[in-house]
Simulated scan of single mutants.
Amino acid sequence: MQTLYPEIKPYARHELAVEAPHVLYVDESGSPEGLPVLFVHGGPGGGCDALSRRFFDPTLYRIVTFDQRGCGRSTPHASLEHNTTAHLVSDIERIREHLGIDKWVLFGGSWGSTLSLAYAQAYPERVHALILRGVFLCRPQELSWFYQEGASRIFPDYWQDYLAPIPPEERGDLIKAYYKRLTGTDQIAQMHAAKAWSCWEGRTATLRPNTQVVDRFSDTHRALAMARIECHYFINQAFLEPNQLLRDMHKIAHLPAIIVHGRYDVICPLENAWELHEAWPNSELKIIREAGHSAAEPGICDALVRAAADIAQRLLDLPPEEA
């Protein structure tokens, strides 16, 4: 079983101004001359942390992480202004240009898989390969499954806590009801809603209970950004056209990809990864037994570390023992 590489510190940090009022936090670690890889975090609204750098061999990779608009160390915090999928795709391209990178590997999980696909389809000539985890295609049935009815039948006890901030008469459209509170002026109601929304995701992210994952999702600062930004995206169908990502797979069919997905992923069911793999002849699908959604689960972590080593071996033409 492969585990994460030891913790490392960035060798460079950047504050990159994009469309006002947003300033993005970007950092680089690993080898400045290595194979560029962009870690695309989930949410939207999740942000990066020290763990984000640890899936990659720092002697082989130039590791770029960034916090998307409104979250993590990017400012302003939890801002929804000028915050759409098109803006985030543009931001990724701006980062690439700012860092002087010609092409890079995209490594994205959950919403990060969505955004990686959207960017790759917009700029296929700038992508070497993709490593995706917990595939999320942001289709209406996926949003309904997790936020309206579906996952609720598997976790009825946790579901009651998710329902708690919403009065019964508004529960016919829970995303709309949450959006009303998360964008309202009542700060107490806003924070109550944010924690309930984020905790629902944290408690269902792993096959076995994981207090560290739940605590991370429950953190007040993180929960506010994640809940507000996720709800903003989801009430707008992620600012994507219907079935856009599968529809446009022909644009990146030539690119290699490794898809890692937990068999028992309740947040993003395995069907998503299966359909993506079926539409992508150049992809490999790794179905992880005894795993749910989170990259923190041992089997998924192992598969992601191996996938990064495999992609480095292919692109750098390394002997197997060096990758």
Rank of each mutant, 00 (worst) to 15 (best):
T114A: 14
S116F: 02
L117P: 05
L117A: 03
A118C: 07
A118M: 10
A118Y: 10
Y119N: 01
Y119D: 00
A120G: 10
A120C: 04
A122D: 10
A122V: 06
A122M: 07
A122K: 09
Y123T: 03
Y123Q: 14
Y123C: 13
P124N: 11
P124K: 10
P124M: 10
E125I: 06
E125T: 13
R126F: 06
R126E: 13
R126L: 05
V127A: 05
V127Q: 03
V127T: 13
H128M: 02
H128R: 07
H128A: 01
A129T: 07
A129G: 11
A129P: 12
I131S: 13
R133Q: 15
R133K: 11
R133D: 12
G134M: 03
V135K: 02
F136H: 03
F136A: 02
F136T: 00
L137N: 03
L137M: 08
L137Q: 02
C138E: 12
C138F: 11
R139L: 08
R139I: 13
R139E: 15
P140E: 01
Q141P: 01
Q141A: 12
E142P: 00
E142H: 03
E142A: 03
E142M: 00
E142D: 12
L143G: 09
L143P: 01
L143Y: 07
L143M: 14
L143T: 14
S144F: 14
W145E: 08
W145Y: 15
W145F: 15
F146H: 09
Y147I: 11
Y147G: 05
Y147F: 15
Q148C: 08
G150V: 08
G150R: 04
G150T: 11
A151D: 00
A151L: 11
S152K: 10
S152I: 02
S152P: 02
R153Q: 15
I154L: 14
F155E: 01
F155C: 00
F155R: 02
P156V: 10
P156W: 13
D157R: 15
D157A: 15
Y158F: 12
W159F: 05
Q160V: 09
Q160P: 00
D161K: 14
Y162R: 08
Y162A: 13
Y162F: 15
L163V: 07
L163P: 06
L163F: 07
A164M: 10
A164P: 06
A164L: 08
A164R: 14
A164H: 11
P165F: 11
I166H: 10
